[in-house]
Amino acid sequence: METIDISIFSLSLVFLLLIIPVLMSSVYKLNMIKSMVYSVARMSVQLFLIGIFLKYLFLWNNALINIAWLFVMILVAVFSAIGSSSIKTGKVLLPVLISFSAATFIILLYLNIFVIRLDRIFDARYLIVLGGMLLGNSLRGNIVGIDSFYKNIRKDSKRYLYSLSLGASQHEAYLPYLRESVQLALKPTIAAMATMGIVALPGMMTGTILGGADPQLAIKYQIMIMIAILVSTIISVLLNIIMTLKVCFTKYGTLRNDIFTK
């Protein structure tokens, strides 16, 4: 079974749908037309370019190039994660980069070597596609995780310092905030898993089925990717917090004020 091609003309019909949100925005003054048009345009151009790029990436299928590209993806994810948080990029770039890379690589290698049993573990189709799914899905959790951890300690600084004065080690004092942030970061992933298949047909499954695969195979991939997302998110969220502690706290165990953008 082949996937039915969408011609350029057909694709333009999709853009026609955008008239609806534009109309709604102008009627209700949602003030969203500009940002919507900008984002749609950006998405289209980015995807168009990546389409060409991936074509060659799959064609060459060179392990080094694949790894390099994965690293670029990680880098973009890291900048986006820190940029959306209230922490200054320069301060935490290196530790966050290490955490993201470790979490993504460990899980990808595990999947490719033990689960999918690839002959070429750096095969572009698996490394790039699965890596993209892991990064894309753990990104939000990571933003929430690192942001809420430091923000809550800052907001709660009196209580945090009070814990220190009661004899807590730095670890004991930040533990309640760590728990809260990790729970908050993983909540959406855990909730999404519980309703998966019934409420929403997940992305990977949709893709695999549209690509002509048997639904039985599609669900196996979906289960694999969901568990991988859960595990890589918890690894990266925890590592992100633990690895940034050193730069974000003073040796007195107090939070540095100059790590925040605002």
């Binding site: 009196k158 009070y162 004065s165």
Partner: peptide, 18 residues
């Protein structure tokens, strides 16, 4: 400072305890 914090008892102004 870490030993000191285990020796000195501090009660803060608005007692953000707990």
């Amino acid at each position: 400072v870490w030993d000191l914090r285990r020796t000195v008892s501090y009660i803060d102004q608005d007692v953000s305890a707990g």
